[in-house]
Every structure is written in structure tokens, then in C-alpha cells.
Design a protein around this nucleic acid. Sequence first.
DNA 1: GTCTATATAAAGATAGAC
DNA 2: GTCTATCTTTATATAGAC
Lengths: 198, 198
Amino acid sequence: MKNRHFSELSPAAERLVDVAQALLQRAGYNGFSYEDIAREVGIKKPSIHHHFPTKAELVAVVTQRYMHRFAEALRGIETQHDGALERLLAYAELFEQTYGAQRQLCLCGMLGAEADAVPAEVAHEVQQFFKANLRWLTDVIESGQQQGRLRPEVNASTHAQLLLCALEGAMVVGRAAGGAVHPGPAALGRAVIVSLEA
Amino acid sequence: MKNRHFSELSPAAERLVDVAQALLQRAGYNGFSYEDIAREVGIKKPSIHHHFPTKAELVAVVTQRYMHRFAEALRGIETQHDGALERLLAYAELFEQTYGAQRQLCLCGMLGAEADAVPAEVAHEVQQFFKANLRWLTDVIESGQQQGRLRPEVNASTHAQLLLCALEGAMVVGRAAGGAVHPGPAALGRAVIVSLEA
DNA sequence: GTCTATATAAAGATAGAC
DNA sequence: GTCTATCTTTATATAGAC
């Protein structure tokens, strides 16, 4: 019942969350164990249970922190870019950065695929992540249309979904195809985004 | 060492492959066990080992059969549709059918996401699946361009990847967002495909 | 906050009878 | 082809000392 929230983590707990996140993005919820974390961090399994009594709690905290950081990144984009087109391109770059490092999947893409094999509390967090992303993207596209920068006849919601799905899919397919997909997520995102230009 | 190939399965083995595939599409490689199959089929675990000594072999056969059936479906599309646009729309419908049933993921989308947590032989099959799909899509788009039906200036390979990634992503996001994504894969696919029309 | 020791259950797999 | 019985290893988790 400790460490219920990502905002009050001790340095030791933070390190566990870091490693858990990387393992999740690489192998999924059922693809890693407390032993994997222990080995990587250099402590023993029961020490992890001291910080996060159950795996479900640990992964819930990882997911909350991921969502929170993503929301911060979206606010950063709004600060740095005024135009809808530029905001969408910067959005695509977020996925490129995640994937570009070590071909890591989006945490929520991975957990979303495994939705039926994941604790309900985690699945719920993941759902919030995607809803927030779709809301943000739809707003950006609609604003761009109102400003006359984006084609007014396209359906904002549909194209928000198209962009999000293309980016998430690019990470899955890119990893699965093992190099057969040359452009990263950002390049595919650009193909969608330029088609929106007025 | 038995049942190395999907084309020589006994009826009992075929039933195991059916159930294993459904479980894989629902929960992923590490999200199901021989016990889950046994419960569903109504036999005991060791009976499954008689047909498929290891889980890796079982999943490899599932994947081979899936790929083979998909390739058959692509040949069916070529038989039924002459135009590139129609072929691409029929392709998108394949994903709609998989997802539409029970919000099931593409088998190879799931295994691709889990690529690092899956036996090497399985990961290799999955890679072949995506390469074959990208090859087929690129060919269809290039043919459409040569026939003057599709816009000649778009990069065939990039848009083949965009379509495939959007469809795979739509299944992941659709399941993860739990109803927040209204259009199924086919609707997102159409948004990509119509933009290719000459 | 970390450890050793331990509990409990599940997963993957094998031996051998029917 | 299926079963019971069994083995081994791993995963998740707890108790209690330092």
C-alpha cells in the first residue's frame, strides 16, 4: 500500500520504476518479473516488494508516470509551436524519440495490445492515455481547420485516430519486421500530416 | 518433434491450434498457458505436450498456419478484384473481420509487439508475415499507379507501410481505448486509401 | 531500505500406464 | 491419444532479522 502515486517516489523507488518501464516496453506485462528488475538494479526481489507490494501496483505507477510525462510533453508542444501543422509534426516526433532509442514500443501501445492479460487498474490507465491523446489531436486538427491552415473537409476525429494508430502501428510493425520498415514513426506520421495541409 | 507443420495436423491437433491462436490473439505469448488450452478443449496438459512438445513449437505452427491463410486471402482478393483501389479496400476488410469478431488483435501484431519476449523461431515467422504484406501492398499500389488509377507521385512503399501500420495500430488502439475509437480498422484504412486515388 | 528464508502456486515439461 | 503422477523452475508474495 506504499508508493501509490508516482509523484511521491523515493530515489530507490524511482529507479525501480525506470527499470520496470524499460522492461515493460521491451517484453510486456507478462514478459518480465521482479527477478528481472532485481538483477538489473542490483538488489533482491523482496526489496522491490517493500516499495511495490504487488506487480499490479508497480505497473500502475509506471503507467501513471508515463501518462503524466506525456501530458507534459503535449503542453510543451503547445508552448513551442503555434501552428497546427507544426504541433502535429512535433507530436509525431515524440513517438520517434521513444522508438528511435532502442526500438522501444510505446508503453501504452504494449499494454493496450495485452489489455486482456493485464490488471484492470492498469488497463484503465491505458484507456485514459489513448482518450487524452485523441482529444488533444482532435483539438489541434480542429483548431488548424478554424485557422484555415488545415483542409476543412476532413473529419478531425477520424484523422486524429488515423495519425495515432499509424504511429502506434509503426512501432509494432517496425519492431516486428526487423528493419523492413525503413521510415520510423515520424516519417509515416508526416505522410498523414502533409495530407491535411490546406 | 511431431506436428512440425500446419499442413499435417490431426483433427485433435488442429483443435489445439485453434484454441491456442485465439488465446494468443487475446493475451499474447506469455499471457496463456497449456493449462488454459487444456481447460478450454477439455483435455489435460500432458495430452497437449503429446501433440506439441514445447510451447515454442505450438506457437510456431499457429503462426505458420495464420500466415498461410493470410496469403490465401490475398490470392483470393487478386481473383475477386481487378482494380488496385478495390484490392486495397478488400485488404482493409481482412483486418476488420479479425477485429470485428471479438476485438481480436492480428496474431502477428500481438507477437510483433512482444517480439523480444518470444522464441526466435516465432519472431522470425512474424517477420516474414510483415515482409510479405508490405511486398504485396507495394506491388498493388505500384500496379495501380501504372494503370493510372492511383496518384503517381506518392511513394508506393511508404504508403504500403502507412496502410499496414494504420490497420495494425487501429486494432491495438481500438482495444486499448475501449470503444473510444469508433471506426474499426477498415474505416481508417479507407481514409488512407481514398487519399491515393488519382 | 535491504537482506535471508520461506511459502504458494503456476508454468513448462517428462515418464510411463491405459 | 489421453491419462495420472511427478519433476523442475520460475513468479509472486510474506515474515522477520539487520
